[in-house]
Amino acid sequence: MPRTEMMKEKGLTLVDAINEALYQEMERDDRVVCLGEDVGLNGGVFRVTDGLQKRFGADRVVDTPLAESGIMGTAIGLAMGGMRPIPEIQFEGFMGPAYDQLTNHAARYRTRSRGAITVPMTVRVPVGGGIHAPELHSDSPESIYAHTPGLKVVMPCTPYDAKGLLLAAIRDPDPVVFFEPKRVYRSYREQIPEEDYTIPIGQAKVVSEGTDITVVSWGASVFECLAALDKLPEDVSAELIDLRTIYPIDQDTIIQSVQKTGRCVIVHEAPKTCGMGAELSAIIQEHCFLHLKAPVQRVAGFDTVMPYYKLELEYLPNAERIGESIVQTLSY
């Protein structure tokens, strides 16, 4: 939707930025359609698609039947038929029924048809915990999709990055899973350009430069890392990297940083085992072995089912755990 006075004055939230990107891209490209549960008249349960149906009509912002595999599968067909579909899966916990269509079909079509048939679509999915939501509304399954050849996976955490990465994702010739950290949806505002811009998929961002230790994170955890960095002793110079794109990984930015600092802490909400932290650790030991001064540490969710919300803050990495891990890593 066009910007409100509030946005002009105080900046845009993540929700505002994604909505603006969708709005602008639908204006620019007739092939773009949004589809999903409650995305039309209701504007989505998080209001991310608010006002789009009113502007672009019920043919392009479509309230579908309540069936995730159906949403993903028909979106694949729309893409094959020349459209640029943006299916929304209402919460990451509902990806299960759509998993087959996404991983066995969308991800594989270019390869199995040797380029004859492609699936340019952007799957929008609210992700992560911290909003006191019911069961299966708070998970972080990004590594599952990063482990699926043929999919790109992004998870921006700022309004600026969200707009630029979403526009890049929609214009990408391959399927992109666009995770939106719901804890950040309305918790942070910033002024971002109103005009069209893209951020290349596959580029991490150095949030703050430093020389003593590298902290790598993505999604809502980036804000926890920032809080942790604030509390570090003054003489510690920490470099914070927001991965932004989960796959393909921006290895160069990580490698350059860790070769400089020799120490690294990786922070994510997803369970530790086989989380993206494991892959990043492997990349670091492959490329930074002689530079390392300490073992790479991971501050992550546990290898448990995500607890109901009374205990979710005990599960999610917080500034204290991150800070502690940084101090420990520096002590080597």
């Binding site: 043919d59 392009r60 159906g70 028909t74 694949i76 067909g77 729309l78 020349g82």
Partner: peptide
């Protein structure tokens, strides 16, 4: 795999309708 392609057919037909 069995039965997954019917959704693609539906989506392709949907694209024809939209266009």
């Amino acid at each position: 795999p069995i039965g997954t392609q019917m959704l693609h057919a539906t989506g392709i037909a949907w694209a024809f309708k939209l266009k």
